[in-house]
């Protein structure tokens, strides 16, 4: 498999414009309802974040707009719109965002279809261990998951352009394609790993994620022309205590496979994409009565 921008041998895939499937103009309630059905949605949000801190350590020690502003904003979206039917036990927002594009620490794009955390809680913990310098992250997740009031855990990605994009001047370069997990067969997933040191992780560890075999039943979408006031929300991982944990082959695919791709409609000379990702871990309790 070639991971690259010019992967002409990849299968030709239909990618649907998801905008006509949601209300226009976007509404929070309709976005939430789409998220329930598809595992992803375009959510309207005017963030008050001014500085997109990408230094996790600094953010943890000194705080940042991400800890002080973005984190409460995202928690409110999760509690009030994405998961209002559940008792949400905890929302763990990182103290920094993963930034992409010029002058960011990651001046490259996630080009290549993948899902980041695997299928089972073990997969997820493996991934955490690959980056965890404290050595405690996986244990803490297991401890939280095992607590009586918790029924499941989810990771939700908030993917947003930050290039000063407006309706008149929207994001045109390298949009994100997302795949509806309901149409992904477990048997078409490929369990993969990266040497953790190649992605800023720990020596001797491996990450844990998935690649995907092409199938004509898969349904791909994207949101053309995003602005700074829109955030693409997608589920990256989800397991429940009710799942049969012993067999990862038996788990349904719930995380959204995704990739950056070259949009043939991008005008020549469009500036490179500037965007952020914020991956939020949510421990979920019982359904509300």
């Amino acid at each position: 498999v070639v991971y690259g921008d010019e992967d002409k041998d990849a299968p030709i895939t239909k990618i649907r414009d998801a905008r006509p499937h949601q209300d226009s103009p976007l509404t929070e309630d309709d976005a939430a309802s789409f998220f329930h059905k598809k595992g992803f949605c375009l959510f309207p949000q005017n963030t008050k974040v001014k500085r997109w801190n990408e230094d996790y350590l600094k953010g943890m020690v000194f705080g940042s707009d991400i800890t002080k502003v973005y984190s409460p904003e995202l928690e409110s979206i999760i509690r009030n719109y994405l998961l209002p039917e559940y008792h949400v036990i905890s929302v763990d927002c990182p103290p920094a965002v993963l930034r992409r594009g010029p002058s960011s620490r990651n001046n490259f794009y996630g080009t290549g279809v993948h899902q980041d955390y695997g299928l089972s809680l073990e997969d997820y913990k493996n991934n955490l261990k690959a980056y965890d310098f404290s050595g405690q992250a996986a244990k803490e997740v297991q401890k939280k998951f095992d607590s009586d009031q918790v029924c499941g855990v989810m990771v939700i990605n908030f993917w947003r352009p930050i290039g000063g994009y407006t309706k008149a001047n929207p994001l045109r370069s390298k949009p994100l394609a997302v795949c509806d997990p309901a149409f992904v067969d477990n048997g078409d997933t490929v369990h993969t790993a990266l040497d953790a040191t190649s992605v800023g992780g720990l020596k001797g560890k491996q990450t844990d994620q998935m690649a995907l075999k092409y199938s004509p039943q898969q349904q791909w979408y994207y949101y053309p022309n995003m602005t700074d006031d829109e955030v693409l929300v997608f589920k990256q991982f989800e397991v429940w205590k009710d799942d049969s944990m012993d067999k990862r082959e038996a788990l349904p695919v719930r995380g959204v496979f995704h990739t950056a791709f070259v949009d043939p409609n991008t005008p020549e000379g469009s500036p490179p994409r500037q965007s952020t990702e914020c991956r939020v871990q949510v421990f979920i309790g019982k359904r509300k009565e």
Binding site: A10, R16, S215, D263
Partner: peptide
């Protein structure tokens, strides 16, 4: 409004297996 549906080469998708 018109949709912007596409047909593109999605990078990194494994080709279907033929046997």
């Amino acid at each position: 409004s018109s949709t912007l549906d596409l047909e593109v080469n999605l990078p990194g998708l494994f080709r279907p297996e033929f046997s």
